[in-house]
Design a protein around this nucleic acid. Structure first.
Lengths: 201, 201
DNA sequence: TGTACATCAGTGAACGCGCGTTCACTGATGTAC
DNA sequence: TGTACATCAGTGAACGCGCGTTCACTGATGTAC
């Protein structure tokens, strides 16, 4: 297992660059491997062009690598939703489904794993993750409330309506990925369905 | 690895009983292990009180075991939905969420895995599975259509409305399991939300 | 300006483990004569 | 009614593999004097 041709040792103070490379390698393995089982410590090291023990300088084990992948993904997710122009509910939904469609395995791991009670050392990372998830949901609530007020309706139940919208988006995104044979409506048609529910009642 | 105390060798013509025992063992491991990774060929054999090579008399490998678990689960799922009295939309939804709540890992595997293009030998099993999934969805469409006609609305878009209901139910079921820290509405409140969307527009 | 030293970013070999899979086999039970 | 034989439901030992983890190490680079 010689080091990859391309890789050169990081300079003196920049050892932590490897951390980012490992996260990138793990993310690639996750999407290509089709499952989180593809993200093994040895596999990630191999992909990054480094030997297995090097990983321990940055992560306590395979679980911590996947956690870092999820953390970064949540940050990017939030960024993608923000960049979509969060005032427009429809484009916010489009950004949501876009992320889920282009990075299906990452999305699956973000929202499809049960978050177990972490070890003490993981607590910060999980709180960050929860924060990121909450922040993304907050954007949804905000957009729903704004859509309500701009059409002269009561925005006080925005959280509940945003929850309904979220479960619809998530259900569509994940089932479309898992059951592709089903006659799914297009994203646009799905928006019509879900937002029709929002603007009525 | 001595054979489990309880287990006795099946009588002459009844060798295929082991198949059912293996599926039951795999189902138990899936729910207890918290993930499909817990369903290993050796683990299933161990749980069933049998040595590993015995499994090959009934399954071609670990994938085939999990497939059998899913097949049986879909049959039971359809049965549970039927038994709920499929005419009432609300109790149908309750049966759906009941299954997802009491057997979360099984539910996750049923609807959370991408169905890859199977090997030729798996085709029949997958078609059965798809059939079972479609049959369950058919119950939903039927109940939605019936609810529409009984309230004097147009039942022609029942399939689309049933799809919206399905993604909502699935999103709620799977996110509630994955993100338990979220302030989820109760199942009843969720029904109100989802069915309010159904009866309007 | 030169040199000893500490530090840093990794390497390489080794380990034990559980896994999937194979192979030859065993021992009870039914069947043919 | 007894006995040889075929069949069936498994067993037990062995294999190679990739994994996670450990340990002592190496070699380049900056720093102290």
């Amino acid at each position: 297992v010689a080091s990859e041709p391309g890789r050169v040792r990081n300079p003196r103070g920049q050892g932590s660059r490897l951390r980012a490379e490992l996260v990138a390698a793990a993310t690639a393995l996750l999407e290509e491997g089709g499952s989180e089982e593809a993200v093994t410590l040895r596999g990630v090291a191999r992909r990054a062009g480094v030997t297995a023990p090097s990983v321990y300088a940055h992560f306590s084990g395979p679980g911590a690598i996947l956690q870092a992948v999820v953390d970064r993904a949540f940050a990017e997710f939030h960024q993608a939703l923000t960049a979509s122009g969060s005032s427009d509910l429809r484009s916010l939904c489009a950004a949501y489904l876009d992320f889920a469609r282009t990075r299906p395995q990452t999305y699956r791991v973000m929202f499809g794993r049960h978050r177990r009670e972490g070890t003490p050392e993981m607590t910060d990372a999980r709180e960050l993750e929860d924060l990121a998830g909450s922040a993304a949901f907050g954007l949804l609530v905000e957009a729903v409330a704004q859509a309500a007020t701009s059409t002269g309706r009561d925005p006080s139940d925005a959280q509940l309506r945003a929850t309904r919208l979220w479960v619809g988006l998530h259900g569509y995104a994940s089932l479309r990925e898992s059951v592709p044979a089903f006659p799914w409506p297009s994203e646009d048609a799905m928006f019509d369905l879900l937002l029709e529910a929002q603007t009525s009642g």
